[in-house]
Amino acid sequence: MAEFLAICEYLSVTPKDFFDNDNPNPPLVRDTIDKLKTLPENDLLLILTMINRLQSK
């Protein structure tokens, strides 16, 4: 188990991220989420609008 945790640390991913096949870039997603948590609601709504627009292409 120690070796697995060392691999996760080396890759900058959590054990959960390691097994998440739907997330192609866990460190970037985690960093983005951490920063989103600090934003006020109106900024979050703006970002959500942009994400929805990008996904509809």
Rank of each mutant, 00 (worst) to 15 (best):
L44R: 03
A2F: 06
P40F: 04
L11F: 11
Y10V: 07
V29C: 08
T49R: 09
D20P: 01
Y10R: 12
M1C: 08
E3S: 13
I51V: 13
N52Y: 03
I7V: 14
E9Y: 04
I33D: 01
K37M: 07
R53N: 10
M50W: 08
F19Y: 05
I47Q: 11
P15S: 07
S12P: 01
D34M: 09
L48S: 15
T14W: 00
P15C: 11
M1S: 12
L11Y: 12
I33H: 04
F18W: 12
E41S: 06
K35R: 13
I51D: 03
Y10Q: 12
P40M: 02
P15I: 00
D17G: 06
I51P: 02
Y10L: 14
K37I: 01
P26F: 04
P26H: 07
F4A: 15
L28P: 02
N23E: 09
F4Y: 15
Y10T: 13
E9P: 03
M50A: 05
P27N: 10
N52Q: 06
R30D: 10
Q55D: 13
L36R: 04
L5Q: 00
P24S: 04
E9S: 02
T32S: 02
C8G: 06
D43G: 03
P26M: 11
M50C: 08
L5C: 02
L54H: 05
K37A: 10
A2K: 04
R53E: 11
P40K: 01
T32V: 01
I33E: 01
A6C: 04
V29K: 05
V29N: 04
V13P: 02
N42V: 08
L36Q: 10
D43A: 13
D20H: 04
T14H: 07
Y10A: 13
M1E: 12
L39V: 07
L44N: 06
S12H: 10
P27A: 14
S56V: 09
N42P: 00
I7Y: 14
K16G: 05
P26L: 13
I7L: 15
I7C: 13
K37W: 01
K57R: 05
K57E: 04
R53D: 10
L44M: 12
Q55N: 15
L48P: 06
D17A: 07
N42L: 11
T14E: 10
P15V: 02
T14A: 04
N42W: 10
L45D: 09
K16A: 05
D17S: 09
S12Q: 13
N25D: 13
K35T: 01
N21G: 12
N42Y: 09
L44A: 07
V29E: 09
L48D: 15
I47P: 07
K35P: 02
F4H: 13
N25V: 05
L48R: 15
D31A: 05
L48M: 15
D22R: 14
T32F: 00
Q55T: 12
D22G: 10
T32N: 02
M1D: 11
D20E: 08
F4L: 13
P26D: 08
D22A: 07
T49V: 03
